[in-house]
Design a protein around this nucleic acid. Sequence first.
DNA 1: GTTCTACGCTAAAACGATTTAGTCCTTATC
DNA 2: GATAAGGACTAAATCGTTTTAGCGTAGAAC
Lengths: 341, 341
Amino acid sequence: MKKVSISDIARKAGVSVSTVSFVMNDKAVKMRISREVIEKVENVAREMGYRPNQLARGLRTGKTKTIGLIVENISNAFFATLAKTIEDEAKKYDYKVVYCSTDNDEEKARELINMLSQRQVDGYIITPTQHLAEDIRRLQAESKPVVLIDRYFPQHEEIPAVLVDNYEGVAQGTEFLLGKGYRKIALVTIEAEMAHMKDRLRAYYDVMARHGDAVEERLVKVVPYQFDREMALKEIKNLLSGTDAPDAVFFLTNYLGVLGIEAIKDLEIKIPEQLAVLCFDDNDIFRLYNPTISVIRQPIEEIGQKAMFALIERLKHTGTGVYPEDKPVKLAAELIPRQSI
Amino acid sequence: MKKVSISDIARKAGVSVSTVSFVMNDKAVKMRISREVIEKVENVAREMGYRPNQLARGLRTGKTKTIGLIVENISNAFFATLAKTIEDEAKKYDYKVVYCSTDNDEEKARELINMLSQRQVDGYIITPTQHLAEDIRRLQAESKPVVLIDRYFPQHEEIPAVLVDNYEGVAQGTEFLLGKGYRKIALVTIEAEMAHMKDRLRAYYDVMARHGDAVEERLVKVVPYQFDREMALKEIKNLLSGTDAPDAVFFLTNYLGVLGIEAIKDLEIKIPEQLAVLCFDDNDIFRLYNPTISVIRQPIEEIGQKAMFALIERLKHTGTGVYPEDKPVKLAAELIPRQSI
DNA sequence: GTTCTACGCTAAAACGATTTAGTCCTTATC
DNA sequence: GATAAGGACTAAATCGTTTTAGCGTAGAAC
């Protein structure tokens, strides 16, 4: 049993394909198709279970009503929530989203852009990796709208982006720890190749300096980009134990925090008596852990909504020459104090 | 700047589109295109950055090299891992996967099938909801291969499925608890509308009966299908507290377990001294929680691989009339004892 | 009686690929 | 010297839609 096409409907209803097309696209009235014919066609289409072929439609119209979403890793809670929000938001505007993960691999990101481009998505929401600016400019040159999320290229103001204010978030967290009287504040971060991570790191240094506490470099642990789980665990344990151990630790990402919890658990360090813990970006585990872990919460839903809105605006305006303002948008983070401080 | 099409390449290279097509599809030799022309075309294509339009290609060939993956909820750890495995596996066979979540909603599932069907995916891997068998039969009638995962329709042996042996898994877990001397074993499950959950529940009853322990119905908590978080939390707390509280609890799903942990934490019940805890299906939280929580682990990777393999087999054989055997496949679960018992 | 307009619909081109059936040269065969 | 047999390509149909231009008829206008 083959799929039914528009011409099957036309044949069975005794009309032309054009007529069927008009009826199916609610253009029947505009094209002054008669009541009877409209009903006839609708009935036949329903009976035969007609579903228009989106490939053909997309080929003809140049629009697929699909947007491509590229995130770092869809199984990470942060990106999963973001993806969900974006999908829900897209649905409101009658767009479908197809998502994929880069695993933070530059080459893979490029491949994904290519794949989505070949599949003719109408627009892109991308969590970029390093060195992706050129590829994104190329999409823009093909007049495909792109909005970045979570990360941005400071030197490319013409690429719109929606992200949390990383600098403010970490500054706020560091101030909070200092305010609570902690002095030896350790920091665990990932190799900062992109601006958003550099902003986070810079905030820590700035705040510490502002309080007259020069940062002790031994307290800053930079985990390499593509890290080995066991290796990283060992390094964090190293940082947190020993004679002159820190009295607080600030993890700059979600998964580093989870790793940190594991390290602290293995070392049997008491939170918060021996060590205060703060993490950038929330996670189910932090809410449930015993004790609960304080976090800097990113406004995930807001990021998703704003990004989608920005994209839709651009989608509406493609070809009109009228463009919404670009420039990255930074949203406020929120400190959520829990038992770990 | 518009996208370059095959005819742009043809024009620039001074050959016909057919020739370009042959070269791009490695059929040049078979079509005895000369060395020089091949190189010429390849160079022009590279220079102009030609990427074939997959819509056009799919329309013409009837194959999109895409498979549709429908899961319950992509932000759930179990499905996220499954999706990742399936995606990796698909890549080996040169297929792309587009995934979407039903949120366990029958209507949404149907819509998703429709959407994927309109987009002409070549095959489906589906975590079905109730009453979806007919819709799936319809796909099969259109000779689109389908493989179910995680769930199945016992009354439809002609729909292939790959899942864990739910009955064996829960039986093993219950035996284990009994073997450790626990007698008042509570059970928390979700309203069992589909076979896989019925199997789990039945295993518990069977094993209890086999040991001569008739199940006390007050120890079995069935959380309604679309549950309210706070409500469910309260009910679980009810079950676990009071004068004649259970000495062990078995959560039949991942997210019920997480909810349970939260309840137990709120009640300040000591694990495992006051209450032993076991959960069907693993989760990061269980590995990290203090104490660590014992689980029945599903062989997620194996499910993904076997499902993908089964689908590929069917994809290869579509139209040949030769079909691989159907019938659901059940894989062994593994008990992972941790501190909670 | 011819020309207009409106009505209700259809023909055909177009989107960008793939693929079948040629076409037009050479060169080989008898 | 006519025919056959490659060799190296190309023309055109096709996939399933959308959309523009147009066609035939009927009644209105002059």
